[in-house]
């Protein structure tokens, strides 16, 4: 039972991060390799808001999440907007550069020391018994949040006006623009939503297990999950996360813990060889002369 819980928590972590990759890729075909760094930034923002609103942990978290949303929109408006229409690769490399910049800034502002947002909020991470196993409060919150986020995104994309516009922009930007959809607004929204989900992930992970710059690597490890499921499919991201998390935990249990670090990337290579567009992704168009 504990095995299943461990897999579920890890899968929730990966899924919550992976949907950030998917949102941006689906709408603008840009792979945001700074997602891990943005996620880390949100967790550090929580440290600051926690010291501002030391009486109200929930307000502190809400403030941090709101700030992250703003960061995402600003990143699009001031940086990625200029890369719209450029070569996709240039845009991806811009996100890499953004990541490097953020890593530097985070250390400059908050120092490289290991931090504990949970302590800053005055929270204790209780453990809860479930189905013959145990789960930490933050772990349970992670699973619930992931479920809510995915349900919310699903409803948003399917039924809301902006969600439909987002899907339209992703399918055919030219037609969408001609139909009167403001592409820049849609892209900015996608970036905002993506950093928002990233912020949720970053904050919950840091509440569960502390915060330092290795969080970036966690963001990177969630990327294979997004790709295995298909970079433009939310369902895919969910299933992909489950696969990667299961592979990783089973590797720790039954083979060699050291391999668990490499296993997501092995699965990824396997997937790239067999089905590069992922389990649920759309097959990219072939070249035409």
């Amino acid at each position: 039972m504990q095995l299943a819980i461990n897999i579920a928590v890890l899968a929730a972590i990966y899924a919550l991060i992976a949907c950030g990759y998917v949102l941006i890729y689906r709408v603008s075909r840009v792979l945001n390799l700074a997602h891990g760094e943005l996620m880390m930034l949100s967790a550090y923002l929580l440290l600051t808001t926690a010291s501002l609103f030391s009486k109200n942990p929930l307000i502190a978290i809400a403030a941090a999440i709101f700030l992250s949303l703003c960061v995402g929109v600003l990143v699009y408006l001031f940086l990625m907007r200029r890369m719209t229409g450029e070569m996709v690769l240039a845009a991806v490399l811009t996100t890499v550069a953004l990541g490097v910049l953020l890593r530097g800034l985070v250390v400059l502002v908050w120092s490289a020391q290991q931090q504990n947002p949970a302590q800053a909020l005055g929270w204790v991470n209780y453990s809860i018994p479930v189905f013959g196993g145990r789960i930490s409060a933050a772990g349970a919150a992670l699973i619930i949040t992931t479920a809510l986020v995915y349900a919310g995104l699903f409803l948003f994309l399917r039924f809301s006006r902006y969600g439909i516009r987002m899907r339209a922009a992703g399918q055919n930007p030219l037609l969408a623009a001609q139909r009167g959809i403001s592409l820049h607004a849609i892209y900015a929204l996608a970036w905002g939503l993506s950093t928002l989900t990233g912020a949720l992930a970053g904050i919950l992970i840091s509440l569960d297990s502390g915060l330092d710059s290795t969080m970036v690597l966690i963001g990177l490890k969630a990327f294979p999950a997004a790709l295995v499921g298909g970079l433009d499919s939310l369902v895919g991201a969910l299933i992909g996360s489950l696969i990667i998390a299961a592979a990783e935990v089973l590797m720790i249990y039954y083979v060699d813990a050291l391999l668990s670090d490499v296993v997501p990337f092995l699965v990824l290579i396997l997937m790239l060889v067999v089905r590069p567009w992922g389990l649920f992704g759309t097959r990219e168009e072939l070249d035409r002369v």
Partner: peptide, 20 residues
């Protein structure tokens, strides 16, 4: 004996093995 890779998001699987 658990050898844990540095960027591990969740230590529970390792802890489970030690406890079990």
């Amino acid at each position: 004996k658990q050898i844990i890779p540095p960027p591990t998001p969740d230590y529970t699987p390792f802890a489970t093995l030690i406890k079990d």
